[in-house]
């Protein structure tokens, strides 16, 4: 295919650009090194091919493969695992960071102290209430066990005057009234 004048002009203009010119000069200067590298690569390829063509080497590789547990499934699994490597790397990185954070918290005395204080702040009110309830229950049990009086009708009447009993009874009364009204409807 013939080159159009525009393309030729473009190529010419590209080649005369100072940066391209400089790159070409640099490339030419490095040609001996590049040639050496290519030669080394060629040697390596020749060595590889010669090795694979060597009957004894091939026999050894076959024996090794036959005596191993490697199967087609193993290779398939390896490929699948390789496919998952980016995701596994991400997960591993995240786990590594969480682990590093946990280790740092554990090793940091000031942070441990801070966490301890915070836990105390949250636990103290709950613990206070639990202690008060336990004390009250102990007192009730002790009094009940000490009390050898018989409960009489008069005792029940006295209870009825207690504000807490009154309060409870009012709730009961209100509940009965509401339920009764609901049933009539």
């Amino acid at each position: 295919m013939e080159r159009t004048p525009t393309k030729e002009q473009t190529l010419e203009s590209v080649l005369t650009r100072p940066d391209v010119e400089q790159a070409l000069v640099s490339l030419v200067e490095r040609l001996p090194e590049i040639e050496k590298s290519l030669r080394r690569l060629e040697d390596a390829v020749d060595f590889g091919m010669a090795t694979m063509n060597d009957q004894q080497v091939r026999q050894k590789v076959d024996t090794l493969l036959d005596s191993s547990n490697l199967q087609v499934e193993t290779l398939e699994a390896a490929v699948k695992l390789a496919e998952k490597l980016p995701m596994l790397l991400q997960v591993t990185n995240q786990l590594e960071q969480v682990l590093a954070f946990a280790q740092d918290v554990y090793a940091d005395e000031q942070t441990r102290e801070l966490i301890g204080q915070r836990v105390d702040e949250y636990v103290a009110p709950v613990k206070g209430k639990a202690d008060a309830t336990r004390t009250m229950l102990t007192e009730i049990r002790a009094r009940a066990e000490r009390d050898d009086r018989n409960i009489t009708l008069f005792s029940l009447v006295r209870w009825l005057k207690e504000p807490s009993v009154q309060h409870g009874l009012k709730y009961m009364q209100a509940t009965v009234e509401v339920l009764s009204e609901q049933t009539k409807k």
């Binding site: 960071q97 590093a100 954070f101 740092d104 801070l114």
Partner: peptide, 12 residues
């Protein structure tokens, strides 16, 4: 805690 032990350690 996240600041002292995560952010300043390069993990959070």
């Amino acid at each position: 805690v996240m600041y002292w032990n995560g952010m300043l350690k390069g993990t959070m």
